[in-house]
Simulated scan of single mutants.
Amino acid sequence: MNLANLQLRAPHAEEFVAVAALVHRAFDAAVAPGLNAEGRATFYAYAVSEAIAGRHAFEHLTLLAERDGQLLGMVQLKLPDHLCMLFVEPAAQGQGIGCALVEAIIALACAQQPGLRTISVNASLNAVPAYQRYGFVPMSEERVRNGIRYVPMEKQLDA
Rank of each mutant, 00 (worst) to 15 (best):
A123M: 05
L101A: 06
G73S: 12
S120Q: 11
S140H: 12
Y44M: 10
S49N: 07
V128H: 07
M74R: 07
A10G: 07
M74Y: 09
A109I: 03
Q113I: 14
Q112K: 15
R145L: 11
G98L: 07
Q132E: 09
G135P: 04
F87G: 01
V144W: 06
L157G: 01
N5S: 10
G54P: 00
A111P: 02
L108P: 00
A107C: 07
H24D: 14
E89C: 04
E154Q: 14
R133N: 11
A10Q: 09
R67L: 08
I148W: 08
R55M: 05
N146F: 11
L61N: 04
L22T: 02
T42R: 06
G98T: 02
H24P: 00
R55H: 07
M74I: 09
A91R: 10
Q113A: 15
L86S: 06
F16L: 08
D158A: 13
S124W: 05
E154C: 12
L61C: 06
F58V: 11
Q132P: 01
S140F: 09
E103L: 13
A4I: 10
A20L: 04
L72E: 00
E14P: 00
I148E: 04
L86P: 01
I119V: 09
A92L: 02
F16Y: 07
A104W: 03
L61P: 01
I52M: 12
G135C: 06
L86K: 04
Y44I: 12
A53P: 02
A10V: 07
H82P: 03
P152I: 12
N2G: 12
R117V: 04
R40N: 03
V17C: 11
F43T: 00
A45Y: 04
N5C: 14
A127D: 03
S140I: 07
T42Q: 05
R149P: 01
H82R: 13
P90G: 13
L116P: 03
K78C: 15
N2S: 15
P80S: 13
E141L: 14
L157E: 02
A51I: 09
Q70Y: 06
A107N: 03
L63S: 00
N5T: 12
Q70C: 08
M85L: 13
V137G: 12
G96W: 02
R67G: 03
C84Y: 05
E154L: 11
G115Q: 14
G135L: 07
Q113W: 14
N126W: 12
H60F: 04
A45V: 06
E38C: 06
Y46D: 10
Q70K: 10
E89L: 11
K78E: 15
A111I: 02
R117C: 05
P138T: 09
G69D: 03
H12L: 12
A32G: 06
A18M: 05
A30W: 13
F58M: 13
L157R: 06
R117Q: 15
F136R: 06
T62Y: 03
H60D: 03
I105H: 00
L125P: 01
A26M: 07
M153E: 02
